[in-house]
Design a protein around this nucleic acid. Structure first.
Lengths: 195, 195
DNA sequence: AATTCATTTCAGTCTTTTCTGAAATAGCTG
DNA sequence: CAGCTATTTCAGAAAAGACTGAAATGAATT
């Protein structure tokens, strides 16, 4: 069934499991993992053999990976078959993943919230519910804005940003002392309990 | 089945759908959404009625939400029933979500990678695979480190950090000019294509 | 210790998702 | 265009997951 080295097999199986925790199927996760660690592009037949799954399953899974932009189609000279790889810059992979997940999860949620909040609340319960949704909308909006701001950074700057981490706040604190800024709009901070 | 106002119903149904895209079931998503927008704590019976699902399903879903630390158990005076709410600080909810997802997804992956990379590679293919896994390990390690660094920040600082966004890099660039730092360790940047 | 009310458990059913094999499609090549 | 070879599609089978009702458990009250 699987003629993979134990190490690669562990990796592939783990990604299969993880796939289930995300929205993707076990097979899609396994195929991605396999391509990721493979030294050369693979054709569908090879993947089916390596993972012990049907040819048609590979076909469907690859289609899904392509929809996620996680996989690259290559053509070898004098070979009609389709070969596949993953992009090799892991930072780029991260960007793609973030972008796709935002598109599928964050944006629709923001849209639903915006729509609901545009309608006037009926009774007190609805007014409360809208207040809560406003908080959530504010939070997601801020995260989304931060992401848009940061997604264009190149690898070096991204690494730098991460390395800086919480140290940034020293600057913020310093700035606060010098020019005390007005607080964030109430709607965005309602329910704040820590601080 | 559902005697909820249209607005709340939209919200609840959307979270049900989203739940499926995550590792959680539709029902768990709906219950969470319902509690989130509810002005007062709800008991299991009420949730079952509002969502048109069985009492036992509510019980199991609540158990799962508790495992995620996403829900709070309350007791009302002179009432034996268990009532539930969500924490009301959305930033705290975000922290909890991040923490739990890290625990379930990131940490196990890091463990698997560490284990595999501790074994000596056999042939050239395994050497390549390990190089790839090293890249991934480096990336996840950096993200994980950043998270650990940032997770303790209070709401105000977190907001500030997000608001700053990419602007931080100006500082990084400035620092770069003044004291040109040595590049990140090769293992962490192999395969870098952008920059 | 019997009653009442709430929660949990779980075996079985139902639903949804994933996977397969066979057939259809597509694209070369002679 | 006939013959290959590779890919895609899709109806149904298989597997996984979610949900229910009934029974068990627990906890408070009389």
């Amino acid at each position: 069934m699987m003629k993979l080295s134990p190490q690669i097999q562990s990796f592939v199986l783990h990604f299969g499991e993880m796939g289930s925790r995300w929205g993707i199927s076990r097979t899609v996760g396994q195929i991605y993992a396999l391509l990721f660690v493979s030294a050369r592009p693979l054709c569908a037949e090879e993947m089916a053999a390596a993972l012990g799954i049907s040819r048609s399953n590979v076909s469907m899974s690859l289609r899904e990976l392509q929809a996620w932009n996680l996989v690259l189609l290559k053509h070898l000279p004098d070979d009609r078959r389709d070969f596949f790889t993953t992009p090799d810059d892991v930072w780029q992979i991260l960007r793609t993943l973030a972008e796709e997940r935002k598109k599928r999860e964050v944006d629709p949620t923001l849209a639903v919230l915006t729509d609901i909040l545009s309608r006037p609340p009926g009774d007190a319960d609805e007014r409360f519910a809208q207040a809560r949704m406003t908080q959530m909308h504010g939070l997601i909006g801020q995260l989304s804005g931060w992401y848009d701001d940061v997604k264009g950074l190149d690898n070096a700057r991204l690494t730098g940003l991460l390395a800086l981490g919480a140290k940034v706040t020293r600057l913020l604190d310093a700035a606060e002392k010098i020019l005390p800024r007005r607080r964030a709009r109430p709607a965005d901070v309602v329910g704040e309990s820590q601080s």
